[in-house]
Design a binder for these strands. Structure first.
Lengths: 135, 135
DNA sequence: ACCTCTTTTAGACATTGTCTAAAATTATTA
DNA sequence: TAATAATTTTAGACAATGTCTAAAAGAGGT
């Protein structure tokens, strides 16, 4: 599985073992996980991984456009995005769903003098599954 | 300053002392504060106020449409909204700014089978003030 | 090898939010 | 009014999320 290494190299990010592992977790589970989720999964394999490394790496990958930060009411989730899409957050089960409907987001780089780095919809509600009583 | 009691009564929420105080803090400071901010301010006057009361009340007021929950990457902020507007979050100073530009938000009640309760933009970047070196 | 720069670690600390059982308050009924 | 029922608040433990720092480990260039 050399995809992670390629992705890192393309952005001139030194492909350390930790970074590869972190990216691989995201590529494998496609769950919109929080940093803590990713940290916990990695700890099972490599108990010495540091929380700071996970947070720093996720930040680095986001800054380089490799990951999208999905903002939810309870945490930031990370998503490896190949095709742009929106996200829906269920306030009951806390899951994030991809939304492929194409409503547009204004393409602004600056507003009222502030520099815009990231603009996204936060769509919050109760998901299909929870409406049916959860599982 | 519009009466907190009136606002509560109009929504049939029993105007207890704690609820009045909480709402008054929001009406007075127009700062897009987090629950913790509000809790800390109230503690100065009434040290016995409970964190749970603050969180429960903010929730109740939001559910009744009295307050808007502004979702940011680090916390939910509360805003007493008279006229609908958007928000900008500065990732450096953590401040939230009102944005009165009118780009529209899709008016959807349901998407992919999920019920939508709240849809808003998350606009993140560096604010005008921090660009000028902060204060 | 040596030196320098980058990266990771460990763990304390801070912030944000949830939960619960008991106490206090308010409303309702007898 | 007194007794009872329902609502609200409290205190504080607990949980989840995120930041920070100094020291150690690792990698690259000469």
């Amino acid at each position: 599985m050399k995809k992670a290494v390629e992705i890192l190299n393309k952005s001139n990010i030194r492909p350390t073992l930790q970074r590869i592992n972190i990216l691989n977790v995201i590529l494998k589970y496609k769950n919109h996980m929080s940093a803590e989720d990713i940290y916990k999964i990695l700890q099972r394999e490599t108990p010495t991984i540091s929380r700071a490394t996970v947070y720093n790496t996720l930040n680095l990958l986001s800054k380089n456009g490799i990951l999208a930060e999905v903002i939810t009411p309870d945490s930031v989730r990370y998503d490896y995005v190949e095709k742009f899409h929106h996200h829906f957050y269920c306030e009951k089960c806390k899951k994030v769903y991809d939304i492929h409907d194409e409503f547009s987001v204004p393409n602004i780089k600056k507003i009222d003098g502030h520099i815009v780095k990231n603009i996204q919809y936060c769509i919050v509600g109760i998901c299909k599954n929870c409406l049916n009583g959860g599982e």
